[in-house]
């Protein structure tokens, strides 16, 4: 029983990261219909930049802030330099562009940083906390809190602020948004910045537990996408729930089936969702967005 509890705890922890990646996906997808395959690179950048800034002697909180800001800047650059010039391109081209961006960012990270695994200290120590017959790392609680905080923050942003509503309006109907005077280009850029910052935050939160290296992005993007699909593409609530669920599925696979193939869980989830319920758990054409 406590074994199961332990698996569930670690599942929820990893799931929090997937949820954050999926939320990042969702923001860009809603604003632009672009499926951003470089989403995982944002997580990698968040972890790597923090690591190296911290190694250079900066205090951890400052290093993390710098990492998040820098990654957001990368997100803006991606939008301005690669997505905006390709406006109106077919889905095929957009997929290839974001995959290209992902490979490019990976390559640069490998050169600027290195190919080693890295981590930095957990925020509040490594002493496990006993909980419901299992133990959980303090950092895991940070991760979970982070995912929930981001979700609530996004909800408030999209429903309570004028800017957030503008983003929502754009995602519902780009042309109409343009007609009522919303600067659609700016909304796109904002979405990329926001999405990149959330990805970087996931990297900052997760690195003390999962470690990071230049090449973690693609697998994370795949899992984030699986999570978003499980929850229902374009639905933030779905992204959160889908992420946690995927984390649980993975942890249970690792625990009871094979630790080698835990990474295959995401792929199986994608296939099962596609076979059985292409709309995902919360997705439907009329579902309200956050």
């Amino acid at each position: 029983m406590s074994e199961l509890m332990q698996f569930l705890m670690s599942g929820v922890t990893v799931g929090a990261v997937y949820a954050l990646v999926a939320l990042g996906f969702t923001i860009i997808y809603n604003a632009s219909d672009v499926v951003n395959f470089a989403q995982g690179e944002f997580v990698m950048l968040g972890g790597m930049i923090t690591t190296f800034a911290h190694l250079a002697g900066l205090p951890l909180p400052l290093a993390a802030l710098i990492a998040i800001a820098a990654t957001a800047a990368v997100g803006v650059a991606l939008d301005k330099l690669a997505i905006e010039p390709a406006r109106g391109a077919p889905v095929v081209s957009l997929i290839i562009i974001t995959i290209g961006a992902s490979i490019f960012i990976r390559g640069v990270a490998q050169l600027v940083f290195d190919k080693q695994l890295h981590r930095f200290p957990a925020f509040t120590g490594d002493a496990p906390i006993a909980l419901l017959g299992a133990t959980i790392l303090p950092q895991s609680l940070w991760m979970l809190a982070g995912a929930i905080a981001v979700f609530i923050g996004l909800w408030a942003f999209f429903t309570r602020t004028l800017t957030g509503r503008a983003v929502l309006a754009t995602s519902n109907n780009r042309l109409a948004a343009q007609l009522v005077g919303i600067n659609v280009k700016w909304v796109m850029t904002l979405s990329f910045a926001l999405s990149a910052a959330i990805g970087a935050l996931a990297g900052v939160l997760a690195t003390p537990v999962t470690n990071t290296s230049y090449d973690i992005g693609i697998a994370l993007a795949l899992k984030g996408f699986a999570a978003a699909m499980l929850g229902g593409m374009g639905n933030p609530k779905g992204a959160l729930v889908g992420g946690i669920l995927l984390g649980l599925i993975e942890a249970l696979t690792a625990g009871y089936v094979s630790s080698v193939y835990k990474d295959a869980a995401a792929f199986v989830v994608i296939l099962v969702v596609l076979f059985a319920m292409p709309q995902g758990l919360f997705g439907s054409k009329t579902t309200d967005r956050v």
Binding site: A82, P85, A86, A89, S93, I96, I97, I99, G100, A101, S102, I103, F104, I105, R106, G107, V108, Q110, L111
Partner: peptide
Amino acid sequence: QILLGLVMMLVMI
């Protein structure tokens, strides 16, 4: 990787 990524993006744009 840098080159492949650049080629993909530039050609598509």
